[in-house]
Each structure stands twice: as C-alpha cells, then as structure tokens.
C-alpha cells in the first residue's frame, strides 16, 4: 500500500518521490500575493472596520468619525432581551430544520434510490426547490397561505369550515420550519443519495450472504458508512438555518413583538431600522465569536475521536 510521508522538501508516495516547493520560495510568495491581497481588502479591512465600529458610537451621519465608547455596545447587546429572544429563535430553528431536513433527506435517498438509479432525470425534478431564491419562496408562501387567495386555506375552509392561522403567533414558527424544510431537503437528499451510491455493492452482497436483513444492513453497515456525510449535512444545514433571513423576513418580518426575529434579522433591524450601527456590529461580533467557538469545539471533538480510533 502506498505511504504518504512528507520529508523535508520532498513527498514520498510509495516508490515515487515528488519535489515540494518551499513555502518561503519567491515564486510561492508571488503566486500567493493576489489571494492574500484579496483577503486583506475584502475580508480584513471590513473586519477591522467592524471591530472599530463595535466599540464606537456611530450612525450613518458619523460613519467617518466614530466616537470610542468602549464596551458599551456589547453591554447593550448583552442586556437586550430581544437579542436573547432572537438567539433562541435561531438556535431552535437551526437545530430543528437541520434534523428534519436530514431525516427526510435520508429517508428519501434510501427509499427512492432504486427509482432514481433507473430514472436519473427524477433527481433534476427533485432538486427544483433549490433553484428558487429563498425570498421568492417566502413570497410564494405568502400567497399560498393567504386565507382569501391561497389554495391551502381555501380547501380547509371549503371542506372543513376551518380558518387556520398559519402565520399567527402560535403557529408562525412551525410554518417557517416547514417552509425551510421543504426547500432544503433536496440538498440533503442529494448528499445522502451520493453517499448511499458510494457504498460498495460487495459489502451489501457479503452482508446478505451472512444473513443480514435489510434493516440490519441499514443500521449496522450503511448508516455508519454514511456517517461522515450525515454529520457534514447536519452541520451545513444547521449553519444555514441558524443564519436564516430571507424567507422568514418576507413571510412574517420579525413577527409580532419580534417573535420570529432570527439573529440575522435582529442585526439587520438594529443596523438599518434603528440606525444603531455600533450595536448591530457588536451583535455580529458576538455571533462570530460564538460560531467560532462552536466550530472549534466540534473540530477538536472530531480530532480527538479520530485520534482515539487510531
């Protein structure tokens, strides 16, 4: 089996030796310069400005003359009940939608696998919701769920005499979860279908010969082999759900009393609607630090598990 072993300026792959460029070589620096400049200009500079604004009193009129106020913006965010309400909304929304999308995507990937194998064009149809911009999805559901225009309330009224409130205070959260799940399940379906297809058929045949039934094969062989893909899908969907903005904003705004304000909506409203630029930026810095801490912890956990397996 080929061994991959770095050794100074060379990499050994089996019998082959490949020369590796030195990271401090002039051509290496030259090639890296555009990327470094790009990152400095488009990420580094805004990040620096954000850090300055987060500790300043600043408005649209004083963008170029921010006044240093220390940690006042962070304290304001920390003591703002709306910030915690938005954090709780985002966390619940992110976790629930990620789990639902992965469960549904996994079920469809396995259940529809034989059908998609024979008729691959079906996959293109199943992917259609992904092609629609989230803001348009929000608009579409504003029509679909409207009591006097939408088909869903129409049939509920016609056949059951019921006027269901889909976007009222008690049901808006769940309606938003369903809308998000319906749009993004195709993404997890695609990932899981590819992972499922990548499982070698020899393994399935061998387990069948050993007497494993379908459910046993799924539970003990296929799902563990799809594990890394499932974990990646959960993480990606959680991040996307946590930072949700478009469809929620179009459907319910920040909701009555701010009940459907996600963290992204909270930051947007603080920035634009209240003109509290320092507070909005401070909230985004808090969000960045929290996200970094979560990702760092997950990475550390994954590395430890990897080490333990070795």
């Amino acid at each position: 089996m080929a061994s991959l072993r770095p050794s100074g300026q060379q990499t050994q792959i089996g019998a082959m030796t490949i020369a590796r460029p030195q990271s401090n070589a002039p051509e290496f620096r030259l090639l890296a310069t555009p990327l470094v400049l790009f990152l400095l200009v488009f990420l580094g500079f805004p990040a620096l400005v954000n850090l300055v604004y987060s500790v300043s009193e600043v408005s649209f009129e004083t963008l170029r003359q921010p006044k240093f106020t220390g940690l006042a913006n962070f304290l304001s965010v920390w003591s703002d009940a709306a910030f915690w309400q938005a954090s709780w909304f985002s966390l619940r929304f992110g976790v629930l939608t990620a789990i639902l999308e992965c469960l549904l995507g996994l079920f469809l990937a396995i259940f529809l696998s034989p059908l998609i194998e024979r008729r691959s064009w079906l996959m293109a149809i199943l992917m259609l919701p992904l092609m629609v911009a989230p803001a348009l999805v929000g608009l579409m559901y504003r029509l679909v769920l409207h009591e006097f225009v939408g088909p869903v309330p129409y049939y509920l009224w016609t056949y059951f005499g019921a006027s269901v409130s889909f976007l009222g205070p008690g049901s808006a959260f769940w309606t938003l979860v369903v809308v998000e799940t319906l749009q993004w399940t195709p993404f997890t379906l695609l990932l899981f279908y590819m992972a499922y297809q990548a499982i070698p058929s020899e393994i399935a045949e061998a387990s069948a010969m050993d007497g494993a039934r379908s459910l046993q094969r799924l539970w003990f062989i296929e799902l563990p082999m799809m594990g890394p893909t499932i974990a990646a899908a959960l993480l990606i969907r959680f991040i996307d759900g946590f930072r949700v903005f478009d469809n929620v904003y179009v459907l319910t705004g920040s909701g009555p009393g701010g009940s459907t304000a996600s963290l992204s909506i909270y930051i947007y409203e603080a920035f634009f609607k209240q003109g509290a630029i320092g507070k909005a930026v401070a909230a985004s810095v808090v969000l960045f630090v929290a996200s970094f801490a979560v990702l760092y912890s997950l990475n550390a956990l994954a590395s430890r598990r990897k080490g333990a397996k070795r």
Partner: peptide, 16 residues
Amino acid sequence: TPKDSLSYEFAEANAA
C-alpha cells in the same frame, strides 16, 4: 379580523 392579520400588510388586507 382574520387570525393571520398579525402577518397582514397592505396587499393582504386588500385581497381580503
């Protein structure tokens, strides 16, 4: 007023 009025604005009210 409809139960979903808490999500209504100009267009929704007109449609109703």
